[in-house]
Computed example of a mutant assay.
Amino acid sequence: MGVYLYLIFLGVSFCASVVGAICGIGGGVLIKPLLDAFGVLSVASISFLSGCTVLSMSCYSVVKAKKSGDSLVDMKTGTPLAIGAALGGVAGKMMFQFLSDLSGNKEKVGAIQAICLLVITFGTMVYTLKKDQIKTHHVENAAACVLIGVALGICSSFLGIGGGPINLVVLFFFFSMDTKTAAQNSLYIILFSQITSLINTIVTGTIPECTLGLLGLMVAGGILGGVAGRKINKKIEAETVNKLFIGLMAIIMLICAYNIYRLW
């Protein structure tokens, strides 16, 4: 890889993490399809790098919010969700590894991920545009929260996106959270799912091929993006966050469509 590609990877991780910290989507939902589109690394390597970047950004954002006393995380529902996401993160990683080992064509796995992400993103966009007309709920049962978290963890880990837009839709629908509260709770859930996913990757010895320099560069981009995104999030209105989120969904769907065409 040339120096310009390292700069592209740094730029993608930083910009995606800025947006991820603002909207609560983690950033992986942009990092994964964008880097897949370049086709310079394997699907497994990009999933791993994306997950590590999202982990660094979410870790900074959650810890900083807690220390600053402006955390909007609802521990009563957020913690069972996060525990479920941690369990789901392991299951999703195992599903991805199983599919990778089963498939003779590794690129097809990337195409399947792109199809799943396209469908999820489209559904998320439709829900976001119609959410004022949809009745929401206030789930408080801990067991139900854990099960919902498991589903989120499986999706995020299998797709290598950290959490993505599906987290926000679930938090809107099942817990009636506003945009900024949902964003912080989403990052809290992402943090747990990515920690367990990374631990599982290390323990099972399935770390894909990638250079430490590139990994360090993307983690740094994730942290710096988290710093910038957190500052921006505090200054803008919730309606602006909504508009940014909808615009991102459209961009992600276009990238996914291109990746399906390229990888299938």
Rank of each mutant, 00 (worst) to 15 (best):
I251R: 02
P33E: 09
Y261W: 11
Q133E: 14
A82Q: 02
G222Y: 02
G149D: 03
S47K: 01
I246M: 15
K135M: 15
I232W: 01
Q133N: 13
D178A: 01
C256R: 04
L171C: 00
A16N: 04
D132Y: 07
M94C: 13
E209R: 12
K64W: 09
N185G: 12
C256L: 09
A250Y: 07
M177F: 06
A16W: 05
A111H: 06
D36L: 13
I189K: 00
L191D: 04
P208M: 13
M94K: 13
F98T: 15
A91Y: 05
V3K: 10
G27W: 00
N242W: 04
I148R: 00
S58I: 05
L35S: 03
G24V: 08
F48R: 07
A250M: 12
P80T: 09
G84W: 08
L212K: 14
T201S: 10
S56R: 03
T196R: 00
G205C: 07
I148D: 03
Y127W: 01
L10C: 14
T121Q: 11
I260Q: 02
M249S: 05
A82R: 03
G27Y: 00
V109P: 02
I166R: 02
I115Q: 04
T53Y: 01
I232D: 07
G28M: 03
G89I: 06
A238Q: 12
G89R: 10
I8D: 11
M125Q: 10
Y4A: 15
G149F: 08
V40Q: 10
F96G: 03
G162F: 02
A143H: 12
V62D: 08
S45K: 11
M253K: 09
G92T: 06
V18T: 05
L99R: 12
V150P: 04
G160Q: 02
I207C: 02
G163E: 06
L171N: 02
S197R: 15
S71D: 11
S17R: 08
L224W: 09
I207Y: 01
I112S: 06
V62C: 09
T121K: 10
Y188Q: 11
L198N: 07
G78Q: 02
P165T: 15
G20R: 01
S193V: 00
K180N: 10
L263A: 08
S197L: 12
S17Y: 09
D70W: 05
Q133K: 15
V219G: 01
S61Q: 14
L248Q: 02
L129W: 11
C52V: 14
D70R: 08
I189Q: 03
N233Q: 15
E237T: 14
A37T: 14
I134V: 14
